[in-house]
Amino acid sequence: MSGLDKTLLVSSSPHVRKGRAVDRIMFEVMLALLPAVAWSLWSFGLGALFTLLTAIAASVLAEHLACRMVGRPSTVRDGSAMLTGLLFGLTLPPGLALWMVVVGAFIAIFLGKALFGGLGYNPFNPALVGRAVMQATFPVAMTTWVASTAPERFTRLPSTTLAWPLTQPVVDVVSGPTPLSAWKFSHQATDAADLFMGSTMGSAGETSALLILLGGVYLVGRKVMGWRIPVTILATVAVVSGALWLWDPTTYASPWFHLFSGGLMLGAVFMATDMVGSPMTHTGVVLYGILIGVLVVVIRTWAGMPEGVMYAILLGNALAPHLDRLIQPRVYGTTRKGKAP
């Protein structure tokens, strides 16, 4: 009768749980990013490897330090800092000076997350906060792109990578425009198939639309992520850019180009879907997706930057509380206005 001789555990109902915990979700997302990471390593070699590893390590360190500074238990093990680091690294140009990567990762974690109380309380996507601040801080370095599948990529690092801290990196590798800047500034279109497969220049993780989509499909299949955000963003981009293109195909880029170039895929699948910064309800999420999609096309087409995804998502994040506020679910047994009918 030993089973009855000890104190019973008392807990509050419900006594069963669905199972998948937060750390598990982070892990699944990282898993889904693997194909894109692998592609990045293949096409950019050591440059991408060092960028990604540094970003992850610096993010984890920053998270640990941030927790220690305010006397909280370290939250490194929930995996969110690692994911932020990985996502941040994937948005960087491979070959970015490592000291800049470290600065950016600290900005992402401290400014994007720890300042607001850590995981769950960050109003903006931390990786994108890091990326956007870096873009404004080191505009030249952040837009210096190395060529993809350079022959010596596995044997030597781009000279920019190892620039001394606080100094300007000296560019010696073959650099060139991304498909988006080529279009924006020289009106050169890139072959859609190249974009889709990823044999172009760009950020470490953004080049292969196909592999990113694959990761997204995995996450949707595993129910880690809803399909609504990526689908509405991509659909909106396709519709808006498609309309412009049909109207004047010489001035405006084709929808294929928009869909498969730059950071749109990575942003739509992995950044905008960050649960913390996106609205909760289905309607809210759809509006959020449409807003981001429209902003992407608007910024890419008419504003100064060739790429607008990160700004669009940050603005979407800023609007998410309002979408949540305006679109509260109608409570059972009440009318829209909240009164019993």
């Binding site: 601040v133 404004a136 801080t137 080191f138 001394w164 606080l166 100094t167 300007q168 990196p169």
Partner: peptide, 20 residues
Amino acid sequence: LFPAAFQPWVIMVLPAGGFF
């Protein structure tokens, strides 16, 4: 203050830098 190789942090002279 620094040698010519110093990399300026452009954001600091931008509005956002003021806030930060």
